[in-house]
């Protein structure tokens, strides 16, 4: 009776301590991009611009950058000039705080804000080829640069909110993002290595998708795998999670457009 009571009382306590001990951040020196978990063939495919299929979208994005759109009949280039200089390093800082919205916006949303406010054009739908192409083109201009999202009084509450989502267990499998990507990275899940979930190369060409996809698509993909309800495209939860992941990946180099298995 006493022994049984002790077991019931102690087990949750032990389990509680264990999860506390495990849910630690990955030390800075051990942080590695997803590309370091891939095979040499996939890495070679990413590193050569003539074999990286993401470059097809970058080329489309380059054309879209110069194309006049909307009632204002303005192109991205009319305001921003050469993306090679004006967009250099921008993707490494996104999601970034937008004063008018009072919250962070990701690169896709920023492009769409430019479209509706400056070009007077209709916003591009999430995951459309046109939005992916422009995002990939802008992202490409930061390749090799260290991720450095703002970590200040304005963004802190949103980073904290993203972290809360990352560490919260949810879905039928009762998993959090951290269960895999903080506590079990480097191990295998159904034969595939579990990476650390650093969003270094979005939009990313995922071989499994056979197309380019956004970070939000990837997040929804993981949540469906957890059998949780995925957040809808463009919701605050998704952007908070994106911001937390970019903050967590600070210092790693942008690889856009990356190739992933």
């Amino acid at each position: 009776m006493t022994a049984a009571f002790l077991r019931v009382a102690i087990l949750p306590l032990v389990a509680g301590f264990a999860s506390l001990a495990l849910a630690a951040d990955i030390p800075t020196a051990e942080r590695r991009s997803g590309s370091e978990f891939m095979g040499p063939e996939t890495r070679a495919m990413q590193d050569d611009d003539t074999t990286n299929p993401g470059m097809l979208w970058v080329l489309d994005g380059e054309a879209a950058w110069r194309r006049r759109e909307g009632a204002a009949d303005k192109s991205c280039a009319d305001c921003h000039g050469y993306a090679q200089t004006s967009m250099n390093g921008v993707a490494a800082r996104y999601p970034a705080f937008d004063a008018a919205k009072g919250r962070p916006v990701d690169l896709e949303e920023r492009i769409n804000m430019c479209r509706s406010e400056q070009q007077k054009a209709t916003p591009l739908p999430f995951e459309s080829q046109a939005l992916l192409a422009l995002t990939a083109y802008v992202g490409r201009q930061s390749r090799g640069q260290a991720i450095a999202v703002a970590d200040d009084a304005r963004t802190y509450p949103f980073i904290a909110a993203g972290r809360e989502i990352f560490e919260r267990r949810q879905g039928q499998l009762d998993l959090s993002c951290a269960s895999c990507h903080d506590d079990n990275w480097g191990k295998k899940l159904a034969g595939a290595p579990v990476p650390q979930a650093h969003p270094t190369g979005y939009p990313t060409y995922r071989l499994e998708w056979q197309t380019l996809g956004s970070l939000q698509r990837r997040l929804r993909n993981c949540m469906i795998g957890m059998r949780a309800e995925p957040y809808a495209y463009g919701t605050a939860e998704n952007v908070d999670l994106e911001l937390y992941l970019m903050w967590r990946a600070r210092g790693l180099a942008i690889e856009t457009p990356a190739v992933r298995p």
Binding site: D49, T50, T51, N52, P53, M55, L59
Partner: peptide, 8 residues
């Protein structure tokens, strides 16, 4: 026209 990437 489809986009192509060629390396020769």
């Amino acid at each position: 026209m489809a986009r192509t990437l060629l390396n020769v």
